[in-house]
Design a protein around this nucleic acid. Structure first.
Lengths: 209, 209
DNA sequence: CCGTTTGTATAGCGATCGCTAAATAATTAC
DNA sequence: GTAATTATTTAGCGATCGCTATACAAACGG
């Protein structure tokens, strides 16, 4: 099963990672083909042979992001023993991820295409859909909390997920504005202070970590 | 004091308002000069004579926005008799403003330039500074609450303002993603459920409106 | 009327946009 | 070896970007 023809002379994954970083930093429309080719050393035809189009490259970059930096949300949600701990971890770990040295501040999914030209609406929609996935993930974790008994049976998981998701999205704006990790962690902590009031206050007490 | 020379043949304020709407809808970089001239009927030289540059026009559009749609935050904060009511109103009225029929969903200041090319960094910074103004406004209202006695003396107004400001920014993302007014109002309501826990729970009870 | 001042219209500047045709290079199949 | 296949290089496509030089039009003061 050896591939025929001239072999590719570059590392496709490495190029994709570089592209992801640029889209993350500057957004979809503000990252030009010239930016991408000069950063990777590739000529346009090589990029197009490998990824099809700028949008195709971006879509793969989004997939890579959700598999790597963006996966933090899912793993944090899965990590906590209770819904409360899971959501708290999710916010705090993202607050840390959004302010990691050497990475663009904030989340690529939130920041890379909040507005765009009509011709790129499909790109904005892709990110909107991905954000909707995040809200569903949070909600799914809350449902599990209800099933596990650490959340009351009548809990409005949709409303709760919408609230914590909205806070999460807001953290990206604040991170891109230069907010410190500590400031974002305080916001996460503040959001968790609503937990008892939102869940009827009948759950277990807040852990200290 | 009659102006000399040929009089301007268009309504400068009306053109500025149209430009604001386009920047609000599509963002700074995605709104082209061709978009602006075709929407207003003006030719480029007229636009440049009146506003100097695309960035100059945008800066005036931002000023107009903060004077009009964006003023809602300040008036809502000033409106409530207590800090708690003021912040609650601020969130709820923005939730409504962000989902008004016939207007671009979400806040122009939050959405119009989350990312941009390096050459337009000054535009992104302008919006970041304006967002910082919003956080300061919230904090100032909280300080007044402390002075008025409806917030405990030791209240960390900076942390509280950061939290509610982050929720406010998140609402714009959710609005642009198509969230309903009711959904945003529920998020605002959820955020207010953190109030007692964040302020020591020694303030007056939450009003019902 | 004339000269000055300011605004508008025509036309197009140089630069960059995303993208690609055509030629050449490097590999496998036979 | 030759043919087939795939990648890279060179060069540049048509379209659009923000912006402007130039010429003309409409108001003023005198």
């Amino acid at each position: 099963m050896t591939p025929r023809g001239r072999p590719r002379s570059f590392d496709r994954d490495a190029v994709l990672q570089q592209a992801m970083r640029m889209f993350w930093e500057r957004g979809y429309e503000s990252t030009s083909l010239a930016d991408l080719t000069s950063a990777t050393g590739l000529k346009p035809p090589s990029l197009y042979a490998a990824f099809g189009s700028k949008e195709g490259l971006f879509r793969e970059a989004v997939e890579l992001y959700t598999r790597t930096d963006g996966a933090l949300t899912g793993t944090a949600l899965d990590g906590g023993p209770t819904a409360r701990e899971a959501v708290g971890r999710m916010l705090r770990e993202n607050a840390c991820g959004y302010t990691e040295d050497g990475r663009p501040p904030g989340c690529m999914i939130v920041l890379a295409a909040t507005t765009c030209a009509a011709e790129n609406e499909s790109v904005r929609q892709l990110l909107a859909d991905t954000r909707a996935d995040t809200l569903r993930s949070i909600r799914a974790r809350l449902e599990r909390g209800v099933a596990d008994g650490d959340l009351p049976a009548g809990t409005d998981t949709g409303q709760l997920a919408d609230f914590y998701g909205t806070v999460l999205f807001g953290l990206s704006i604040r991170a891109r504005d230069g907010a410190s990790r500590e400031a974002l962690l305080r916001v996460a902590d503040s959001a968790m202070h609503a937990w008892d009031a939102l869940t009827g206050g009948t759950g277990p007490a807040a852990p200290d970590d």
